[in-house]
Design a binder for these strands. Structure first.
Lengths: 385, 385
DNA sequence: AGGCTCTGCTCAAACGTTTGAGCATACGAA
DNA sequence: TTCGTATGCTCAAACGTTTGAGCAGAGCCT
């Protein structure tokens, strides 16, 4: 028998128990150790399944586990994080959580985090590189084990630095330097090509693009793919307007296009929020969609099919993007994968609805077959208040 | 002069520096203390503005601050949290972050957190009380300093327990036991009354409600207020269908109402997601809105005014709800306020658009004035990808 | 000269873990 | 009997802070 004389580790403070009268003291390793007349080290190893490795008697392990369960012991994640430098938390940084696209990303990442026993720190960069940098710094400082970042996308240095510091980091949606970091996005270029092909087949010749934030990967890939396909298919230039992934930019760009290129028969809008602005402008000017202007929008949203006319869209696999990014992050965290800078491009679909038609016509005549989905019930999903 | 012999605190591990060759060692209180030949305690107090209180020489304080700035010292939040039991983090738990309503709440709470120097832990309860309980437990365990909770709302025990444990907690949107806890919601009842008044004035007599999750505060207040106003104004019963804040529930409820009460001339839909389902069903059945069925929806969303017909809605001050909840939380955290169970009900607005009309008619004739806003441009906001 | 007060710090414990190293005891072998 | 080895733990440091208590020296008063 070993001596059971253990020094009281100084005076145990009783928490607020003297005041409230019933705030039970936190149960820590100490608590368990004392009750079992063991050292905290032993208890720790027993709980962490290190019993075999450190020759803790099986009976002892059992007693520890039992008491832990009985007292409802939960290890203190902060102490653990301090000691081990791993916090069981991941960070997610998005440009705007209020945006349904990123909200959906957040939803799938949150889901993955929970299923893996991690907590999720959320940061909103508000499309500002400075805020993004700050937020990433804060999160690194808090020892997040890894990060999913939907970067603003205009600058990449701070992100590369962070990743090089050894912290697993996966980019989603917008990549910066996607050749250096793991990255999951929609196949923006494919979307651009599909849009161009559709409009070309319908007989359009003079078309315009309402773009988002120039310089960001989604914007450039969508635009360039469209332009290059259009050049090849139709051989005409493409008008471009717009400066941000925002409603206001959509409004201004639409006014701009109407003024400078009133003869365009179709618009390719690279962002669903901008598209709302564009539609508003068209209505205000009494232009009919699709008779006067055909509209095709990048990114589907639940309401797209409810509108009159319903929007023809390039549908991104939003949930999959978030899910894959999270999966890859957790693969990295479990050392199941090396941080290869593989760039996964997930296929998009063209969903054909009412907002496109041949120039001057009010509806599509020929059922097209460009790898296209006919106005489908894409969005069910859960509800709101 | 004091002795400058300080024991090397055992061997300093170099981190990964030997491997990567340039991972600079973390700068801690120790680092500063050594360089300045001071005790960590002194450095700590100097940095925390305790200089006066603990009689640190002003010159010393200055030297400490300077070096800290020069070396870019950032206190380790985990160590601090472990020691002080306060983490400079808050938690936000919502039923569904993918839902634009809660995404907007998250946006405003995230904003407040950042401005106050806090990080935000996000939890998604997926409208499950069990998940909510787990998530809250996890967050408490991580020592979040406070919580904003948009509860599922069917059970309140775990939330009350958590709050009673002394952790500041503010409810938002849906209250559970709102008489015991600080709470910020829209004035659901006012919304219900406004809806009833509008439909009554337009001459409707047989109307129905498509509800959300029964038993939750928003659902009950909206429904009851509508019913009681309706009883007073029209003296007719109100049909009720629906079982969740979801698209599917909206579809089923709409089918249900059409089958059981085909003669209703107006529906009050308590959730915008359900409303999408309801509209789908009406279209499928060839019912015209508003001629066959007038529609009024609780909660405005950016797309509501773009639809054809545009939706008449009860608009909630979503951002304000989130902002106020966060403000109240931070007031609690700063001890600027006692945790009074005050329930703030923020005013809603009736936004009149095309989806309502007198029974059998296609549009409103009489410009009504029920504290009503004429189909306004409510949503600008920032954009998406 | 001795005591008192003030100044400017230092000490060491504490928060709750993890983890490498080491210490008793028991048992089998020589 | 003595050594070697296996068994089953314990010790103590470490993670990076914060904080109550206390100590040494200087200056002043009596």
């Amino acid at each position: 028998m070993k001596s059971s004389i253990r020094p009281e580790p100084s005076r145990k403070r009783q928490g607020a128990s003297s005041a409230s009268g019933r705030a039970r003291a936190r149960v820590t390793l100490e608590t368990l150790a004392r009750r079992l007349d063991l050292a905290p080290a032993t208890v720790s190893r027993a709980l962490n399944g290190q019993g075999a490795r450190y020759r803790i008697a099986p009976g002892t392990v059992r007693r520890v586990l039992e008491l832990a369960r009985k007292l409802g012991y939960r290890p203190n994640p902060l102490a653990r994080a301090l000691r081990t430098h791993t916090s069981h938390s991941i960070g997610l940084v998005v440009p705007d959580i209020g945006n349904p696209f990123f909200a959906e990303i957040a939803s799938s990442v949150a889901d993955a985090a929970r299923k893996n026993g991690y907590v999720l720190l959320l940061g909103d960069s508000q499309d500002s590189t400075d805020l993004e940098r700050d937020t990433l710094g804060t999160m690194a400082e808090r020892n997040v084990d890894g990060l999913v970042v939907c970067p603003v996308g205009l600058e990449s240095k701070h992100i590369c630095t962070l990743a090089r510091s050894g912290r697993p980091l996966v980019l989603a949606d917008r990549g910066v330097a996607p050749n250096q970091l793991p990255c999951v996005t929609a196949d923006h270029a494919q979307g651009g090509r599909l849009a161009a092909q559709l409009l070309a087949r319908l007989g359009h010749r003079r078309v315009g693009i309402i773009q988002g934030l120039p310089g960001t990967l989604p914007n450039e890939e969508r635009r360039q793919a469209f332009e290059s396909a259009w050049k090849q298919l139709v051989g005409q230039p493409v008008a471009v307007a717009g400066h941000a992934f925002s409603y206001e930019s959509g409004v201004e760009a639409a006014e701009d296009l109407l003024r400078r290129f009133p003869d365009l028969t179709a618009w390719f809008v690279l962002c669903n929020v901008s598209a709302r602005g564009a539609v508003e402008v068209l209505r205000r000017h009494g232009r009919n969609i699709p008779r006067d202007v055909s509209l095709i929008v990048f990114d589907d949203q639940p309401f797209s099919e409810l509108l009159e006319p319903s929007w023809t869209v390039i549908q991104q696999p939003v949930r999959d993007i978030g899910r894959r990014a999270a999966e890859r992050l957790f693969d990295l965290l479990r050392n199941r994968a090396k941080p290869t800078p593989t760039w996964e491009r997930l296929s998009v679909r063209l969903v054909l609805r009412e907002s496109v038609a041949p120039p001057g016509q009010s509806r599509i005549i020929e059922p097209t077959s460009l790898g296209t989905v006919r106005g489908s019930k894409a969005h069910a999903s859960r509800g709101t208040v």
